[in-house]
Every structure is written in structure tokens, then in C-alpha cells.
Design a protein around this nucleic acid. Sequence first.
RNA 1: UGGGGCGUCGCCAAGUCGGUAAGGCACGGGAUUUUGAUUCCCGCAUUCCUAGGUUCGAGUCCUAGCGCCCCAGCCA
Length: 581
Amino acid sequence: MSAEAPASPAPAAPNHFIAQQIRADLAAGKHGGRVATRFPPEPNGYLHLGHGKSICLNFGMAQEFGGSCNLRFDDTNPVKEELEYVEAIKADVHWLGFEWKRLLHASDYFEVFYLCAEKLIRLGRAFVCDLTADEVREHRGTLTEPGRNSPYRERSVEENLDLFRRMRAGEFADGSRTLRAKIDMTSPNINLRDPAIYRIRKVPHQNTGDAWCIYPMYDYAHCISDAVEGITHSLCTLEFEDHRPLYDWFLDQLDLVSDTSLTQPLRDRGLEMPVSRPQQIEFARGNLDYTVMSKRKLIALVTEGIVAGWDDPRMPTLSGARRRGFPPAAIRLFWERMGISKQIATIEYSVLEGCVREVLDASAPRRFGVLDPIKLVITNLPAGHDEALSFPNHPKDESFGTRQVPFSPELWIEREDFMEMPVKGFHRLVPGGEVRLRGVGIVRCVDVVKDGDAVSELRCTLDLDSRPGGPAADRKVKGTIHWVSARHAVAAEVRLYDRLFAVADPDDDTGGKTYRDHLAADSKRIVSAWVEPSLGDAEPESRFQFERLGYFVADRHDHGGGRVVYNRAVTLRDSYAKAAK
RNA sequence: UGGGGCGUCGCCAAGUCGGUAAGGCACGGGAUUUUGAUUCCCGCAUUCCUAGGUUCGAGUCCUAGCGCCCCAGCCA
């Protein structure tokens, strides 16, 4: 778990429609004043930024209203899910800054689901169906035509009970039978056309091993899980809106609140939780432009080697964002800024970058690094001059303290901070011109040494009176540039990341294109940089502002043990570059 | 052509008893600045998908359209 502080400044209380609903429920005395939510990922992939929205919402609402939020793995389909993802998901939720009340699995409730199914059968509300998957499809009808009843729909309760028990006992082959709810094959809502409740899958489950060979379907398992966990508000995305009648139907038939026999298996195991009658509320998932978020495409990026893995800093996964150097507070701020509504919306990537800058501006210590070096020699200082200059670690926050930065007459400066033939509006170093070296004083470029066409060295004189504390320390010059002492500099590998996709909507497949055709050409560049010594032994995952360049993070995996490796999270806003366009 | 949703500024998003369009981001302009960063000012929807209607008054109510998203897994 990370040492990240939870939210920084207390944001205003959210007032979106879900918060309003919860407030109203609280005021009406529903659930005895309790608020309980849950984040229910299926452990079949890594969490991405979109999941972040759901995490922030669910944990955020619990936090806001003095309630609790559980982490529940929705592990009802053993053929798709892997234990490997479970640990990654837990780490991501923690990293984002949240703590669950209980860690649970839908599979914790398998015995309850089973009891509930028998109850449904006894109620005459469920039946064992022998139709094949194809036949079920034929009977279902279409969007505009009603479906037809299964020929097995009118089996007796006794026969259904017998068959269902034998399904559980493993007497039948995979896919040969299902347990189905008996609702209405003519419903305009296709979800209500006798949906499957249980299917036969003779596959070992990551938690229950081979204890079961029948597994419950999502619609059935989810609402019961919510109820037995005492969830009060079950928040999910818009596509489940027309599943809500089914969610309510199961719960109303089962009446888990009064029928305590159904939850006895939990109490027997010491899993004591208040049973509730939860309410499902849907909100729009969060989309980000310039990125793909579908699990399928994310997997493809990884398996096709387009990126270096799930936590490649260009990936929209939470682990990718982490490795990129995005602070968790920035991701929380981002989703808070987007808000919660029912409008399907795609937020601009620049909003995310803005949040990262905002959080990092306040929290990242400043440092010097030169990514594209050119030598600058100060000729009026003894060659052996060696001095330690004191710099504040943060321009606006003294609590960050100061640090010593070694200074000598041979420096590295950024190649783009010098222009032999300056364009108008260029405020940096030019032949014969002056510029301030941050914290050093004003230098004048007296000579340009070239190697062929390429500038190899700038020879400058330092105005000693302009040094800090000197009589001309306040003399104004147009520009200030950063530097690193060549003698003391530490070599670093710096990875410059940019957006993975070149177009705002990589999912747009008009003209037969795929997201692969929209990949940006230069989303990753590696440069050899010179950085100030203090950056050499920083802890992995420490974030800094390299002055005038951007925010960088010491790579989680590759930095340390002799290697100095930084990833660029985001550049600084650059109004000069923007104006030049 | 069935059902469920959604349409307010470039991008998000408030607007909840109908009372005369919040806020954020982006953008434009200016100030401060030893980061062309940050910060700070100022500007930025006579108009709410369209067309009718009700009303003294409509983003909010009514009617008719239009557009977009989701649903026909023994996936979640």
C-alpha cells in the first residue's frame, strides 16, 4: 500500500443526482440511516481510469455519508477469471487512496444463491430448461417480436427441484441444461424473457475449487450479493438500466430481508452482515478522448506488444497512470471535475493533464535536469571553481525546504535555449545576448564554438554583480534558463511519453480503420539526460518538477540500484510553444 | 418498426415549487514572476436539439418531431 495521503484539500460536497438521492433516502430514514456501497470488479483484467470513476463514486459516497464501501470480486464465471488480477485490483484501489470495509467475493455467497434458486423453484418462479443455447436464442424472439415459451416451462416443482439438484450433483453435461427464471417471454424488455439463472460449467473455480459445477449468472448473483452484504445503493453504469426490473424482480421474489433461512449459510460461516433491500442507480461511465478503454483493446495493446505491458506509462490503466507519475489525487480530482450524470460524455484528455499539473505543482519538489544538452562555459571564472548554491525546493511553499546544487564554470544547458539566428520573441540565449542562469546570475554569450554546422559549445561571461546578493542582482533580462553543472551531473535515462493515439476518437472505425491505425507515431522517446545529483538517489516513484520542462517520476521498476530512470508524466504548460504554432 | 436512456457554451456540468442561464476546464486579453510555470484580474450561451402550444413569464409544463447511446451471451 502506498503512503499517499488521501484527498488533499477538502473538496466541496458533491451534489450530483446520486448524492441527492442518498441524501433524500437518509432524510426519509431508509435503511436505518445506513449508507453502504460496493465496488464490484470482475477479476478478468486490469483496472483502468474508467474504473477509477466508479471507485471514486462508490468509496466517495460512503465517505461522504459516513457509510462504508466493500470491495467485491464478481467471480461468477470461472472460465474468464484469474487470481492474478485480484492482487493487481486490490493494489490499484489502495493506490487510488481508498480502503474497503470488507473484501468479499460473489463466490462467498454460492450457497446462498443455491438456496435462493430452490426457493424460486418452489415458488414456481424458476424452471430447469433443456433447450440448447441455440434453441434458447430462437425462442427468445427479437427486439420487435415476442419470444415463445420453452417447452420445459411447465415442469412441476418436484421435477424442477430434482433436476436442479442433479445439475448441482454434476449429472448433466456442460451446457445441456440451465435454470431459468419464469417471467414473461413476451416482455418488451428482453432481459425479462425467462433469463438464465444458472449454467453448468464443469470448471474449477479460483476460490471454490471443484465444489460447484453450476454457476450463477450476473443478474441473479449481483442483486443477491448486494442484499446479503447490506448494500443500500448499488451504483452501476447505464447499460444496466434495463436490467433493473430484473434486479428488483429477484429481490422481491426472494425477500431476503425477512426470509433469514436463505442467509443462514453465511451466519454458519461467521459472515454476519445486515441484509438489505438495495436500490440500483445507474450513471454514465467516463470516457476519455485520445484513448481506448475497452478491455478487449487494452488486452490487444499488451499482447500485440504495442505497449510494454499493463502498466506501460501510456496505458490508461491505473497501474499505467501510476507508473507514468500521475498522482492518485490527480485522478480523484479528474473524476470529481467531470462529475456524475447520465449523459454519455467524453472528457478531454487535457482536463486530465490539467489535474496532474495542478496536483503536482503544489506537491512536487523542483529540480534541474537537461534533456538535450549543449555545453556552456563561463570564461571569467577559474576553471576549478566549485560552489554549492542553495535553492528552494518549492517557489511558493517554504515547508519544502532548500537544497544545495553544485555549480561550476562548465554547464549543460538545453539546446533549445540557444538560437544562433533568433526568431522574434525569443527570450533566451543568442550570440552576444544575455540571459539569466537560474540562481547564478546573468551571462552574456561571447563566442559560439561549432563543430561543422552544429553548435558544440557556448562561451559566456558572467556578470559577477548580477549574482544573488550582488549589487545588480535585480537587473532585468528577458529570459531565465536552467542548467546542470557538467562536472557534477548525473546521467539519467529519461522517457518522454505522449498520448498513445493521434486522434481524439481511436474507437472510430469508419473507413474500415481500427484503433491500430490511429496509434501516434512518437508516443515514447528515450533520451540521455544530465540531471542534478540529488535526483540520482531519489526513491522510486518520487515525483519532481524539472524546472521549465515538466513533471517527472523516478520509475517504479527501473530506477535505483545504480540506474537513474525518470518518466515524464506531463510537460509544463508552454504558452510560448503554443503561440509559436 | 419493441423496450430503456440521453439531448444546456469547444469539453464536462448545475439548473428539483415555471420567475428571467451556476461552476470547472479550454480559449482570448492584461498584471506579477530569477520556471515563457504558478498566481492574480477581466472577457467568454439574449440562449437551453427543433417546431408548435399553455402562461404575465418556460431550459423547466403540454404536443409533435429530430438526433445520439444501450438491449436479442448458458459474459459482466
